[in-house]
Design a protein around this nucleic acid. Structure first.
Ligand SMILES: [Mn+2]
Ligand SMILES: [Mn+2]
Ligand SMILES: [Zn+2]
Ligand SMILES: [Zn+2]
Lengths: 141, 141
DNA sequence: ATCGCTATTGATAATCATTATCATTTGCGT
DNA sequence: ACGCAAATGATAATGATTATCAATAGCGAT
């Protein structure tokens, strides 16, 4: 059985980031949170609630570093702020409820294939894509 | 042959907007511009270049009004600012070149259908969606 | 375990796009 | 031409994010 703290240390070392208190706490929070998708502000507030004294600037910095290191994915939904989630290795797209703000995930191979087909038609070298469906979720209906 | 100015007046009246100097100029600019996709700043600068004295706040206000009236579509690409285009009635999605900033358009019925299928699977009442492919365009390669 | 140096942190100022305020101006029905 | 509500424009305010910079803390070497 692997200890969580060690695992986080290793993750940071693997991506070449110094093991610091804020980075450990933020990574732990992201792994323990029941919310997969979190904004910088949300992370900051959760840390405050846990009595963790970490500056907001540091939260923004660390999240960006984690993104660049491949630990996190950043999403720019139409909510006015970025949302982050751990990169679980499997690409997916999102359904966003405009009523409760909830986020659901989906993956459809056929859509992925069609996107590449379209890029090819336009002689466009596709690097990334963003697909988000906006509407009202099951619970809110 | 229909006169352009009259046509713009009618458009404004049809959506219940008072025919004012700034609204006429902004609508004319959007219709005459060779660039389909324009930011508020871009519209403002183009007006300045044309010696039109229209405040930046008014540009933002009018673009938002046009959007709400259905004259314009607003896109939130990952560029840090909103981009507007005349609503030509036919929905489409975009390819965005991260090298030159150019925007291409596409429409694929199969993707549209799959999106509805996915929404249905999630018992999600879809209202809108945003699909943008990011990469490098033909010209930049 | 201590030293020293560089990376990191945190408080805060700055930035950028966009919106709010409010006194002045203007479109438009009478 | 009048009168007034709606629109405009200069500017302040906002909200998310980034930059600044002095103080602090990892971490490799001693
Ligand atoms: Mn996700
Ligand atoms: Mn378009
Ligand atoms: Zn919901
Ligand atoms: Zn290009």
């Amino acid at each position: 059985m692997i200890d969580n703290k060690l695992s986080e240390k290793e993750q940071l070392r693997n991506v070449g980031l110094k093991v610091t208190h804020p980075r450990m706490r933020i990574l732990a929070l992201l792994e323990e949170s029941d919310q997969i998708h979190l904004s910088a502000e949300a992370v900051y507030r959760m840390l405050i609630d846990r009595e963790e004294e970490i500056g907001l600037a540091t939260v923004y910095r660390v999240l960006t570093q984690f993104e660049q290191a491949g630990i996190l994915k950043r999403h720019n939904f139409e909510t006015g702020h970025s949302v982050f989630e751990l990169d679980r290795g499997e690409h997916h797209d999102h359904l966003l409820c405009t009523s409760c703000g909830g986020v659901e995930e989906f993956y459809d191979d056929r859509i992925e294939t069609l996107q590449h087909e379209i890029a090819a038609q336009h002689q466009f070298e596709i690097a990334d894509h963003a697909l988000t469906l906006y509407g009202v979720c099951k619970n809110c209906l």
